[in-house]
């Protein structure tokens, strides 16, 4: 996290209105494209309006498109989302494709304000087997026990198992044998 992120609101990703659980509802509701009819900086926008705007409108019938020519002012795109938020982009000197790209970018947005995601996923039930409690895996025999218990006072002393005992005996035997054979070679 950098300093520029300090004042961002933090949270988890959430679709507006649980969008997509039932049906998907596009969140972009209208777009206003402003441009100049003669200025060079609006060339890309003018080309876009001539050749791509009808296609965009057909592909996104849920978006109301307004085109607003204004003399000698820079071109811009204002997007309005269902939640009332707006997005703005200055498309000065952009090519036709770039304008198309930014317009399509707005169709993929929800309009929510930029947020620092604490995680990229969220769940209301993080544990499947249940949250741990002091009762989890507790020996039921302890219910009838009378305290203090002899075994439960002091540290747990590890008693060697039968296998460990056998291994120890075997090692001891090996040591004794090697000692005997050493003695034989010396003589």
């Amino acid at each position: 996290m950098s300093n520029s992120h300090l004042f961002l609101t933090a949270g988890f990703p959430k679709a507006p209105l649980n969008n997509g659980v039932g049906r998907y509802i596009g969140q972009l509701q209208r777009v206003v494209i402003k441009f100049c009819k003669s200025h060079g900086s609006s060339k890309g926008v003018r080309e876009f309006i001539e050749s791509n705007l009808i296609d965009f409108s057909r592909a996104n019938p849920g978006v109301a498109v307004y085109v607003k020519p204004r003399r000698h002012r820079g071109p811009s795109i204002t997007a309005e989302f269902c939640n009332g938020e707006t997005g703005y982009i200055d498309v000065k000197c952009m090519s036709r494709d770039e304008v198309y790209k930014w317009l399509n970018h707005f169709t993929t947005q929800s309009g929510k304000k930029v947020m620092r995601y604490r995680k990229l996923w969220h769940t209301e039930s993080p544990s499947i087997q249940g949250v741990w409690s002091p009762h989890t895996f507790r020996d039921p025999a302890l219910n009838l026990a009378k305290f203090p218990l002899e075994n439960h006072a002091g540290p747990i002393i590890h008693q060697p198992s039968a296998t460990e005992l056998l291994i120890e005996m075997f090692k001891k035997q090996q040591l004794e044998r090697s000692g005997e054979s050493d003695g034989e070679t010396k003589e």
């Binding site: 049906r23 509802i25 596009g26 509701q29 209208r30 206003v32 019938p61 849920g62 978006v63 109301a64 307004y66 607003k68 269902c82």
Partner: peptide, 18 residues
Amino acid sequence: FAEWNYDAELYAFGQRLQ
């Protein structure tokens, strides 16, 4: 606002809800 067409808005609303 100047850029407001109620009929277009209503059509878009219906299309958004499919």
